[in-house]
Each structure stands twice: as structure tokens, then as C-alpha cells.
Design a protein around this nucleic acid. Structure first.
Lengths: 336, 336
DNA sequence: ATGAAAGCGCTAACAC
DNA sequence: GTGTTAGCGCTTTCAT
């Protein structure tokens, strides 16, 4: 490895005829140095191609300027987009995103070790398997954490989420007021907090409105699983008035299954609602009635909360719930 | 900041009654220590909660174990997915992904500085504005780089890409053999290498087949831009036999525009082809004839090449071109 | 305002 | 195999 030798602050100091600490100060924002020194140092630094070494700085300041973002590789459809947004927002704060993958809770300890090892300033967790004990461990190390659309009820952790309750109820209200009298719920996978929450809210609210025992079938958030879930149900049961899907992608699958194999049309034969407000949901061929998650605000809130905790570790835990926007699509219409 | 004091290798050494370097050796893979020492050290380390400090290790080894992945925040539709795949693949190699965003070439120097500052082991670049001079600068620092679906012709850099030539020609062959006699190309934005390449190949191949001066209109890869591009064209021109789109999302836009505003049907009135093979392309309501990029293989190849260059900096530059898979959809059919 | 000096926690010769 | 020692490049008192 013939990596060319780095230019260090000592090299610059020697060349500029000042001390090494003078160089250091010039490169630290908010530290004073005479104009003459500053000018000289900057000139020499530029000429020699000196750049402060972030690693050395981290070692001494015990701060890395790095935010760990934990994702699961299981394609939860809109995580990639969330990730992009988070990265954008964190970059603007002069911090960097270091990516960690968590696929099953087996890897949890290894993950925590790795996070700890990197001295990250904070953590944003999107992954489903990130459990309460992880929160405790990070808390012990005073590493602030923000959960994104995750529900870890007992822990009083920082979190941001989209109000599923408000959204689901809005959707069901539309259906109910539109005289839909029989429902089917297509839920996301049981190991997803978000799916469980959306399903339970829907189920309970329907009960409250007088439709008890609304049937539930499960998918895994994917297009195919939406199609299959519906097909499975219709093999032995009648068509409901409305299908409530835990996310848009399954709703799209449902619509396509109805079109292709049942030769039925949405919304004429049955209404379908989704959740998320992904871009495909608004495409002409689907136009799903759904709730759009305020992605940008959610990610921004997550980063805001985290930065606040980094600067001020004693801030009490905070949960910020944002309300999604109802998109009145064309996948629902009043009955009778 | 009341961060609890870290446990260091010295603490463990003292407690275990060995030297600090013994502790260090136990935690370095491939270094020898007697079973007795190893056992003792591991026991104490576990009890005290010791974890080696990656930052300190980086400082001394001059290797960070970090791969910089450069993305642009402009939503190039399938980058998020590429990013997930890369992360997965890099994690498996015991390295980590540090995310960098590059939106315009203005920020280039700042970006390079930052990359250099972090002592990253290697770079994978997806961003459009990552230019040749960046390659040179990184080469000077002996930081290996792999370009992903980027075309920087003069530089003999490492790169992986999907063969656009092979794919586009396959698509056009289908149309040509299906007696399509007039074409419209809807290209991605001009600041995208990939878009330019796809457009030029299509244009030239059509010329070669006898359709010179095939009209070209531009979009930005988005659904809306596909719709608008087609609408703009049809305002003053006749419907072509086939529309060749630079990506699937614009193809989907084109299909929806035809359906909604022109009351025309695909493939009966006009054929449409896309490129990428995103999941939406195969949905029943679109079923686009397209080329599926071998995403997994592409990302794996990128990581393979990079790792090889990290271990062996003198390996000559390598370009790996992978061929996509033709998906014969239902958005094309033979004419007359 | 500036310089000297003491680390941050680790690795890697080098002796033993 | 193990301990000693000298740094990696920086920040940060503490004198001056």
C-alpha cells in the first residue's frame, strides 16, 4: 500500500513558521488567531493540500459527527425514500450517515457493538427488529436514539411517526359514510409494528361502527402478496364492499387481481383503500384513496429531535406525531 | 456531556493482569495469544463491557473499513434500491457504508475533501456530477473508486454497468420485426449519462435500420414528465407506431397519458417500451416490455471490484458490463 | 494570541 | 508468546 504520506498539521506549522496548535486553531471554527497567522496558515495549507484528519479529531473529541441509520434489508417499500431524505437532512447538518443493516434480532448485539465501536453521535432506527433492550443499551452509553415509525410502547424513547389512527379512521369514515357494509382487511406482516398498528386500529374502529369480526388476511406489504391475499379470501368468501389495505402497494395488487382474475372493477364493484401515499398510488391507472405520509416532515422531525438530544443529552424523551394527508382517489365510491 | 467513561484496553489489561498489547492482540483477528491469555482477556472484557475503539484503530492503521457511497438526492428512481443492495453487500464484507450526497458539481471539492478526511477505504459513485477530475484526485490519494452505471469515457476507471446497447437493440428489434414503422424516443434528462447513452443508441440503431431522424423529446425520468413529453409531442404530430422510453417510469406515464387523455390503448394503438425492469413495470395494469437490469449482480460486481482494489491497489482498472434480461410484456404487439 | 506538552485508544515493531 | 515503547494526527489546557 503505497498511499502517499498525508500532510499533517505539523507539516503546515513548520512551513508556515508557527506552532502546530496555531494550525489547529485556524481550522477550528470559533477559535481565535490573529489575522496574520490565519492568513499565512491557510495559504500554506492550501498550497500543501492539507486537510484536517477527521479520524484524529474524532479520537480526541470523542465525537464522530456520524449518525447511524439502521435499516432492514427486507424491502419495506418506502424505506429507501426515507433513507434518501434522512441523508439529505443529516448532510445539511454537517453530519454523515453511516448505514447499518439489521435483519433479525440475532444480529442485534453485534450491531450495537459496531455502533458503539464507531462512536456515533446518535442513532435513527427504522428497522423492525430493533427492540427495547437495544434502547437501554444505547441509553447506557448516552447515545441518543430516535425511532422512525416504530412503536416501542413501554420505552419512553424519542420517536416520530405518522398518525395511523387519524388516517385509518378518516379512510374508514369515507367508506362508512359511503354505505359500505362489509369489509375485508389486508394487513401487513405480523412482525411489523406499523402493520399491526394499522390493522388493530382498523379492526377496532370497524367494531365501534358496528362491524364486528371484520375478517383479516395477511400479506407482506408486497404487490404479489396483496393479490394473493385477496385471491385466497375470495375462493371461499363473498366480495366485500370495501378492502382496507395496510399499504398502497398491496392495494395496487388487490386492484390488479380484481381486474385480471375476477374481471371486476374498482370502484364500481368494490372500493379499495391503501396507506402511505407512494407515488404509484396516484398514477392514473390506480388513483388510490389513501393517506399520504408526510415523509419530508417526518424525516426532518427525526433529525431535529436527534440533534437536540446530541447537543443537550438531558432533554426529556419526545414523540412527535404528524398527521398524514387524505388523498381522495378514485378507488372508492359510495354504495347503494 | 456526562458520557460515561469508556472502558479501554488498558482497563482490561490491568484487570486481567496482562499487558495492554496482549488485549489488543486478542481482539485482532489472526494474531496469536496463548489460550490462557485469550480466555482471561475475553472474560474480563466481557465483564467490563469493553469494545475496541474503531476510531483509534483507524487512526493508526490508516484504514477506516468505511466505503463512501456517493448518491445524488435527485430521485433517480432506482438508486434507493441500488443503495440498499450495496449496503447489504458491503455489510457482508464487514465494511460499512458512509453516505455522501452530491447534487451539483459545485460541491465536488467539498465532497472530495470530506471523503479524504474520513480516510475511506474506497468509493462507489452513483451520482451524475461525479466527474473525471474527481477520479484523478482520488487516484492521487490511492483511494479506489468504482463507478456504477456511469460513463466517464476517457478515464480508465473501474466501473460496472448494464449493457444499454444490447438491451436497447433487443427492444428495437422486437418493434422493428413487429412492423413498427414510425418511432418516438422519450429520453431522460441530458445531465444523465445513462439517459444520453440510451438515447444515442436508440437513435443510431434506428437510423441504421432505415428510420433516420427519429424524433426525440425529453423528460426527467419521472412519471409526470413521461406524460407531459408525450402530450407535448402529440399536440403537433401524429401518433407513432412505437414509443421508446429511457426508463420504465416514463413508459408508465406514457401509457397513462394515452389512456386518460387520448383514449388510446396500449398495445393496440401504439407500442411502448421502457428500460430498467422496476417492479411496477410488471404490474398487470402496465406489463411493460422492458429490459430488467441485473441489480443484484451489478451491485455485487461493484463491491467485488472495489474490494479487490482495496486489497491490491495495483490491479488494473476493470469494467464489467452485465447484460439485462428482456421482459416480453404486453405493451407491444406486431403491427399490420 | 501563541507555543509546549499531555493525551485520545489503539497498533506494530522490537526486544525479551 | 508477551511486554515495552513509540507513535497515528489531532485538541486542549496551561504558561508565557
Amino acid at each position: 500500500m503505497s498511499r502517499k504520506k498525508r500532510v499533517t498539521s505539523y507539516d503546515v506549522a513548520r512551513e508556515a513558521g508557527v506552532s502546530q496548535s496555531a494550525v489547529s486553531r485556524v481550522f477550528r471554527p470559533g477559535f481565535s488567531a490573529s489575522d496574520k497567522t490565519r492568513e499565512k496558515v491557510l495559504e500554506v495549507a492550501k498550497r500543501m493540500g492539507y486537510k484536517p484528519n477527521a479520524i484524529a479529531r474524532m479520537l480526541i473529541t470523542q465525537q464522530s459527527g456520524i449518525i447511524a441509520v439502521i435499516v432492514s434489508s427486507r424491502a419495506n417499500v418506502n424505506y429507501p425514500e426515507v433513507l434518501s431524505q434522512l441523508n439529505k437532512s443529516i448532510s445539511q447538518r454537517q453530519k454523515r450517515v453511516l448505514l447499518f443493516t439489521l435483519d433479525s434480532s440475532d444480529d442485534l448485539d453485534e450491531l450495537l457493538e459496531s455502533i458503539w465501536t464507531f462512536q456515533v453521535d446518535g442513532v435513527i432506527a427504522l428497522a423492525a427488529h430493533f427492540e427495547e433492550r437495544s434502547l437501554e443499551q444505547l441509553a447506557q452509553h448516552n447515545i441518543p436514539v430516535v425511532l422512525y415509525n416504530r412503536n416501542v410502547p413501554e420505552a419512553n424513547a424519542n420517536s416520530v411517526c405518522c398518525s395511523h389512527e387519524r388516517g385509518i379512521k378518516q379512510l374508514i369514515d369515507i367508506l362508512h359514510e359511503g354505505n359500505h357494509r362489509s369489509y375485508l382487511i389486508i394487513s401487513g406482516p405480523e412482525d411489523s409494528d406499523v402493520a399491526n398498528e394499522r390493522r388493530e386500529i382498523a379492526s377496532q374502529y370497524l367494531t365501534q361502527l358496528g362491524y364486528s369480526d371484520t375478517p383479516i388476511v395477511y400479506g407482506d406489504y408486497s404487490y404479489e402478496s396483496g393479490r394473493e391475499a385477496l385471491a385466497r379470501w375470495l375462493k371461499n368468501n363473498n366480495l366485500p364492499d370495501a378492502v382496507i389495505c395496510s399499504n398502497d402497494i398491496m392495494a395496487i395488487g388487490v386492484i390488479d387481481e380484481l381486474r385480471e382474475n375476477m374481471k371486476l372493477s374498482v370502484p364500481d364493484d368494490v372500493s379499495v383503500v391503501g396507506f402511505d401515499g407512494v407515488s404509484a398510488a396516484s398514477w392514473y391507472s390506480y388513483q388510490i384513496t389513501t393517506i399520504r405520509q408526510p415523509l419530508e416532515q417526518l424525516t426532518k422531525a427525526a433529525v431535529d429531535i436527534l440533534m437536540e438530544r446530541i447537543e443537550n443529552p438531558d432533554s426529556p424523551p419526545e414523540t412527535r406525531v404528524l398527521v398524514g394527508k387524505l388523498i381522495a382517489g378514485n378507488s372508492t365510491k359510495p354504495r347503494g
